[in-house]
Every structure is written in structure tokens, then in C-alpha cells.
């Protein structure tokens, strides 16, 4: 196990290195410069600013310097947010984003699994059709459309929850729902398809032949086996949540990383773009690692070799 983990961490570092390099060069191809009202700046002012931020050097040199700084743990300073260090900005903004992400992921998969289980247990009844309908809606409607709809109905018409704010748990409910729609739909579909297959398998017949009730068969035998493929899509689902959160944070004006990221792209705030990308990439690779470990916990057949000799 330890050996496996070390190997995975090395891969993780390599992945991060490649992502960072790619983003760096892609970003340099973006049109425009980081300076507002560029046309109003004189040639002299530009030279001074470029020099100050190190933008006068050739791109390979900038790249080398940036990479050296990253290894030292320095992500640079932001161009637009009063020259604050990027690390500080990220840490400050991380809270709301992570909270939303985890809430959406947790609640979303849980509800999705439940819907999928119900749909499979009551196949071809209105429960099944209802859950399928919800899942199709959830997959096809983008989260921002759903977010706007929630704002209008719950926020404006019913006035139950704040339309767009960030203070306390209540204000996190609507964005969480908007974000959770996608995991709910994905989990429900995966769970239903897999469980129906599991219900048809021999070991389920054997479980019934032992005298187990329908509930016992479902919960003791079927669900764990049905979870296996769902675990695989948890990684991509996390990606969906991250990209989804950028838009949803904007809509609900939540001071999260996503909102800051979108702004930084619009203004060519290079250090923030880089810092956020690295952060997202790191988060994602760690999630994938966790998913792989989860896999082994759920399915003993792929439990990592070498841990305990069998």
C-alpha cells in the first residue's frame, strides 16, 4: 500500500508539472495585456510596468522563473487585486468554494444513489419513470439555467432564501442545489442501470434462495456491487462540479475561487490564472487518487496487491 501511494504521488507531481507548463504557454497566447485601459498608457509607462511584473523578459525565461518560484511555494502576486500574494487570495477564497463543492457532491451523490436504487427496485413503475425524468432534466439543463430558475422562484417570488449573497448556511442552499443537480442525475442513472444488472445476477438469486427479503437482498447484497461503476465516474463528476461552480458562483455572487478565476481570465491576471489552475489540478488529482483507493475498499477483487498477502 505505501509503495503504491508513493508511486501515485510521483505521478501526481508529474501530472501537475505538465498541466502547469501547458497552461503557462496557452495563457501567454491570450490576446491583450493585464493592464486596464491599455490604449491610454504611454509607451514609457508600459515599459516600466512590464519591467515591474517581469513581462519584458522572453517567455522561456518567464517560464523558468515561474517554475522555480512554484517549487519554493511562491505563486507570485496578483496584478489586479492590489498586488496581494496569489496564495493569500486563494486561501481566502477557497472556503466558500470547497464548502459548496463538498455539499453538492455529498448531497448530490447520496440523493442520486437513493433515486437510482428506488428506480431499480421498482423498475417500470412511476417511481422509475419519475427518477428517469429527473435525471434527464438534471443532465440536460445546465446548472446556470437551473440557478437562475431557483433564484426567480425561491428567491424572488417565494422570498424563502436570499437571492444572491454569502452569509451563513441559508445562502448556500440554492447554489448547492444548483450544483448538485448534475451529480444527482449522474449517480441516479449509473445506479439504476448497474443495479438492474446486479438484480439479474446469480448471487442475487442465491441471496433470495437463502430466505432474504427484498430489502435485505437490496441493501446487504446488491447496492455495494452496484456502487462499483459509480465510483469510477466520481472523478469526472468532481470536474463537472468545479467548472459548474465557476458559473454558479458568479450567478449567486459568492466570493469563491470560481468567481475570482473568471475575473482573472477576463483581465489577463496571469499569476491568478496560473495559481487557480494549479489549485484545481491538484484538487482533481487528489480526488482521483481518493477514488482509486475507495474502489479497492468497495471491491475486494481490485484491492491493491502487496498490502496483505493472500
Amino acid at each position: 500500500m505505501a509503495k503504491y501511494l508513493i508511486k501515485r504521488v510521483i505521478y501526481l507531481v508529474i501530472t501537475l508539472f505538465i498541466i502547469t507548463s501547458l497552461t503557462f504557454f496557452l495563457m501567454k497566447f491570450l490576446p491583450g495585456s493585464p493592464f486596464q485601459n491599455e490604449e491610454k498608457l504611454s509607451e514609457e509607462q508600459r515599459v516600466i510596468l512590464d519591467e515591474k511584473y517581469g513581462l519584458d523578459e522572453p517567455i522561456p525565461v518567464q517560464y523558468a522563473k515561474y517554475m522555480v518560484n512554484i517549487v519554493k511555494g511562491d505563486l507570485g502576486v496578483s496584478f489586479q487585486f492590489d498586488n496581494q500574494p496569489v496564495t493569500d487570495l486563494l486561501i481566502k477564497r477557497m472556503g466558500p468554494s470547497l464548502q459548496l463543492g463538498f455539499q453538492a457532491m455529498f448531497i448530490g451523490t447520496l440523493i442520486g444513489i437513493l433515486l437510482g436504487v428506488l428506480a431499480a427496485m421498482f423498475q417500470n413503475t412511476w417511481i422509475d419513470y419519475g427518477s428517469t425524468f429527473l435525471a434527464v432534466l438534471g443532465k440536460s439543463i445546465p446548472s446556470f439555467v437551473f440557478a437562475a430558475l431557483l433564484q426567480y422562484v425561491i428567491g424572488v417570488k417565494l422570498e424563502l432564501l436570499p437571492v444572491a449573497a454569502w452569509d451563513g448556511f441559508a445562502s448556500s442552499i440554492m447554489p448547492t442545489i444548483a450544483l448538485a443537480i448534475f451529480p444527482v442525475a449522474t449517480a441516479a442513472r449509473f445506479m439504476r442501470t448497474e443495479l438492474i444488472e446486479v438484480f439479474g445476477s446469480d448471487y442475487i438469486t442465491l441471496a433470495k434462495a437463502k430466505g432474504n427479503s427484498r430489502m435485505e437482498v437490496s441493501f446487504k447484497h446488491a447496492i455495494r456491487n452496484g456502487l462499483i461503476p459509480l465510483v469510477t465516474v466520481l472523478g469526472p463528476m468532481a470536474v463537472g462540479l468545479m467548472t459548474g461552480s465557476m458559473v454558479v458562483e458568479q450567478i449567486f455572487s459568492i466570493p469563491g475561487i470560481g468567481e475570482q478565476f473568471v475575473k482573472s481570465i477576463q483581465t489577463n491576471d496571469f499569476p491568478i490564472i496560473m495559481g487557480t489552475t494549479i489549485f484545481f489540478a491538484f484538487l482533481l488529482t487528489v480526488i482521483i487518487l481518493i477514488v482509486d483507493i475507495l474502489y479497492g475498499i468497495i471491491d475486494p477483487r481490485i484491492r491493491l496487491q502487496g498490502g496483505d498477502k493472500s
Partner: peptide, 19 residues
Amino acid sequence: RGKDISMIFQDPMTSLNPT
């Protein structure tokens, strides 16, 4: 089921719960 009458199936590779 399982007490008075029980059953053995054809394919032992698939009739046990893998998890």
C-alpha cells in the same frame, strides 16, 4: 427458503457475492 428448501446453482463463478 434456505431453511427447508435450498438450492445449488449451475455456475459457481457467478453465484457468490463478490464483495
